[in-house]
Amino acid sequence: MVDNRLLVPLSETPTVRQTVGYAVQSGLEDADELEVHLVVALPYDAEVPEGEQQISEAKQLLSKATRWAAEDAGNADVTLETEVLGTDEYLFGPRDYADVFGSYADEHDVERIVLDPEYKPGVTSSILQPLERELDAVGLPYDEAPVERPARHERLVGTGTERFDRYFALFWISFGFYLVLGDPTYWFDLVTGVAVAGIVSFSLANVTFSFPLHRVESPLRTLRFAIYVPYLIWEIVRANIAISYVILRPSMPIEPVVTRVDARVRSGLPLLALANSITLTPGTLVVRANDQRLIVHTLIPPAREDLFDGSLERAVRFVFNGRAAARIPTPRERGDAEIVGGDEV
């Protein structure tokens, strides 16, 4: 019989090492024997193309964490269990994570969960604060590891080359924009442009690029985005004509309905692209966007059908993940789209 069982959700953060150390240490304080469950929860299921890569990354992280925990445990009697969660379902927000952790805890008789203050599931943004609230709702006691937490603008900074890439990219974006505004042949503009681009990239590089840049993928994405824009404009014009017809008719046959769509795109830029595309396409308006869960207000039935067919979602996946990623079932087929009541907003 083991006295103390701990659940430690892990993700690639600067503080994950300290969290594992704290979990082992605190667990051994009031018990001789300890069972530590190291888990990684993934936001994507294994079916989508990026899911497989994430699973292999998660396994690497788990093997690293096992070594750390064994190191910290020393001679004490510590049992280590590892598990990748969420491979057979699709996790959205903090509530789903809390549910998954709760059911895992019930299954393995775990009493306490140790949280990394920087906890980031998969590639989405940090969700710790809402996660704490949801864990309260599930009834699982949690304990935040007291790690040394650097300030925000340093937390966003990645490794050496990554940081350089961000400054480099933003410097040229800013400098290019400056020369477009000014006169590229005038020496004054060239000199001040360098100075301004330096200031802009120094102050905003870590704000704008809060995600890691990829040296091959990022330019490719820009290229694919250029293909996407004409398609989007065509969709906007087409749908605008449809809605103009509805609004200008004296009877105005609108049918406002609130729907929920779980989009399979990442938070951040892809989510912005999808949400703004949906909002720009007439007849649909994104009211809320929490991670991948979109609450969309739709005005006319054809627009709702288009939304449920997920053509925009597929286009956004094409832009950010390439052609293979675009071949996924529509939200309607996945069961990710439904009509909800007006009080859901």
Partner: peptide
């Protein structure tokens, strides 16, 4: 709102420049 945050992130370098 994540949408507003990302929009601001993108346009901030341009407005500053």
């Amino acid at each position: 709102s994540q949408v507003i945050m990302t929009t601001v992130k993108i346009i901030a370098p341009f407005t500053l420049t």
